[in-house]
Nucleic acid binder design. Structure first.
Lengths: 219, 219
DNA sequence: ATAAATTTTTAGTCTTGTCTAAATTTTTGA
DNA sequence: TCAAAAATTTAGACAAGACTAAAAATTTAT
């Protein structure tokens, strides 16, 4: 049975691997977990002993298939809990991260599948991130950002890259949600901002920082 | 913010206080938590420093009002989670204890009240134990045991004293549930067993061990 | 009432996960 | 290429929570 701390390390390594960093270094892991590189080194040795990561001194770290499976299960747990909190308990999408961060570590072989069923087998969490299935299969974003859409085109919001509370609240303020339909009215080379029109609203000016953090699908 | 361990100690002390033991000794706490008396002494000092218990060396321990409030909140959390697991996730009542034992420690100021609402503000957990309200008010069992009911009388199961998996499974096997109506057909002085009749079933012989672990209300 | 038994506390150790500071290795750039 | 900078690891320390063994206090029983 893994400790919460060990699980958090696996999750961090997993997310760094996904972000296409060349190597998963102790520094990157330390940054991700707000801890120190020396602490990371210690923990990595333990995970390597348990065959959850491959580790060679000074060369960074890589999840073994076993480690990846565990990481995917934690991600699945986290995202299913987030759906529960939003759909069943009426939390706002900007309030659920920290709670899910705790709930994801609850140990049970049946709980998550039962929750999954209760929720109707959701495919995405409230931020649009895909939920791995029982076997760890996970759909990958096509990585089209709103910032790359051309004037005149229309698209639909699939998800967001930066799930910080601040960004989520910004989106809320302007009633931008998953599945919102957006048409690009204009783009400005000056600051790479864009004017967009979305359902039942006034035109909105979005900065590059915003538009490059929103995943979309052209329609 | 209290650790899980600290919370478990408060819960254990609370439950011993309720069981009308004269004094809450380190040995009793150790037994309750499957740990050693010396570990209990250490922890009690910490809780006393935090003003959650009153402690005098060799004299046992007593929850302060602050400690009691926290203990009641944990009990509330535990029992509400149990209702959730049974009502929403279709767990059996003999499967939920260990999971609730984990879930009760999730830290949130809003979660339990939202769950409570989702569940329709239940008054009892799946074993018939009363759920404290937001203010820590808790209904107390009237402590009438099935074993004290006389021949010919009818009563209804309110709850059970011993919530061990074994006992719950025994009750399940014989379809004895909360709210089951029971009529006492006969009692035997020899071993204090009784024959009972309950809804849609054959007469059943219950040992004293069983009948003295079932809370009932006469009707 | 007092010796024996029991309970409780203390002292010292261990494990987990963290940290700082120092040492070592790798990378960078002149 | 090789010295400086950056990254990584090692060594030693600490806090939390637990344990064992021994000491001290309390309770029990003669």
């Amino acid at each position: 049975m893994l400790s919460q701390s060990e699980e958090n390390y696996l999750k961090a390594i997993f997310s760094i691997e996904l972000s296409n960093a060349k190597t998963v270094s102790t520094t990157l892991i330390a940054k991700n977990l707000s801890t120190k590189a020396s602490s990371v080194t210690d923990m990595i040795k333990k995970l390597a002993d348990k065959n959850l990561v491959n580790y060679e001194k000074y060369k960074g770290v890589k999840l073994t298939s076993e480690g990846k499976e565990i990481a995917l299960n934690i991600v699945r747990s986290h995202r299913i809990w987030e759906v529960f909190l939003v759909d069943k308990l009426n939390y706002n999408w900007d309030e659920v991260h920290d709670l899910a961060e705790q709930l994801e570590h609850i140990k049970s072989t049946t709980l998550i599948d039962k929750l999954d069923k209760l929720l109707g087998f959701p495919k995405h969490d409230p931020h649009g991130d895909p939920i791995p299935d029982k076997n760890g299969k996970i759909e990958h974003h096509k990585d089209i950002m709103l910032s790359s859409i051309s004037i005149g085109e229309t698209c639909v919001i699939l998800g967001i890259k930066d799930s910080s509370t601040e960004f989520l609240q910004f989106l809320d303020k302007h009633t931008l949600q998953i599945n919102s339909k957006i048409t690009i009215l204009d783009k400005f080379d000056f600051d790479n901002s864009m004017t967009v029109q979305f359902t039942n609203g006034n035109p909105l000016i979005l900065s590059e920082k915003v538009s490059s953090n929103i995943f979309v699908n052209k329609i």
